[in-house]
């Protein structure tokens, strides 16, 4: 089943066309990577899909329904969430509290019920907490739940972003350069984590510069350059695509 469909999507910023007539789709259970040089429009594409910016033209469909131009909050409610290249942690909160915000939508009780500790509120809090803890375990950050989020090392902050997003139990997760700033060992473990997400019911759309990881985990790759789609195919196709090599990869990468 096609989960996400992007059709002729375009977005300008002033005179710059950040995303230009881009077409691609993501099937349920897939890991699709988007690669391209800096300024190719990868992050803008993520911002469009997650509702942070609205498209100028073209469409974004999720399970066949148009989602282009919806607010991030509505898109999250449909089961799509994301991480951020420039970390957007809640720095004023503890590690587990960060992840608990990811599980926010598990709860249904409102402010009055919370204030009065209505029956059911405690059970809901417990389920949010345990969801958050298993999400932390998933990314390999157990035992650090009471640390302030901002004291974690950089690589762990990236994992925390993923834990927070996964606490939402999304159907589609957009990972924006999750390996940036990670060392080799951390990147390898991240690759294993990402590769396992489809088995948990989460489809992955990934922006990443680490080619080794992309080529290992991605089922399909979309190459962007100057806002336009340059190529699309399996990792093997992409590695052998002359156009891609000259535009971006360069032979020494492999």
């Amino acid at each position: 089943m096609t989960l996400l469909g992007v059709n002729r999507l375009t977005r300008h910023f002033g005179g710059v066309t950040a995303v230009n007539f881009v077409d691609f789709h993501v099937e349920q259970g897939e890991i699709v990577a988007i690669i391209g040089p800096n300024g190719a429009g990868k992050t803008t594409l993520f911002n469009l899909i997650s509702g942070v910016v609205s498209p100028d033209s073209g469409s974004i469909t999720y399970k066949g329904a148009e989602i282009g131009g919806l607010t991030p909050e509505k898109i999250a409610a449909l089961g799509i969430t994301r991480t951020f290249q420039n970390l957007q942690l809640f720095r004023n909160m503890s590690v587990v509290e960060n992840v608990m915000v990811g599980a926010h939508r598990r709860g249904k009780k409102g402010m009055l019920q919370a204030g009065l500790r209505w029956p059911g509120v405690a059970a809901e809090e417990k389920s949010i907490y345990s969801r958050a803890m298993s999400s932390l375990e998933l990314v390999g950050l157990p035992g650090k739940e009471n640390y302030p989020a901002e004291v974690l090392p950089y690589g762990e902050q990236r994992l925390l972003e993923i834990a927070r997003a996964m606490a939402m139990e999304p159907e589609l997760i957009l990972l924006d350069e999750p390996a940036a700033g990670m060392n080799q060992g951390e990147t390898n473990r991240l690759g294993e984590l990402v590769a396992g997400l489809p088995d948990m019911g989460t489809t992955v759309l990934l922006v990443e510069h680490n080619m080794e990881m992309v080529m290992t985990v991605a089922h399909r790759i979309v190459v962007l350059d100057h806002g336009s789609k340059l190529a699309e195919g399996t990792p093997e196709d992409i590695q052998n695509d002359a156009q891609v090599i000259s535009a971006y990869l360069g032979e020494e990468v492999f």
Partner: peptide, 21 residues
């Protein structure tokens, strides 16, 4: 409660909070 956490989260990053719904 989850509401209080959500409010504090808005403080930390309104963008990320919105993307968590």
């Amino acid at each position: 409660s989850r509401i209080g956490r959500a409010l504090r989260a808005l403080h930390g990053s309104e963008l990320a909070a919105a993307c968590m719904g």
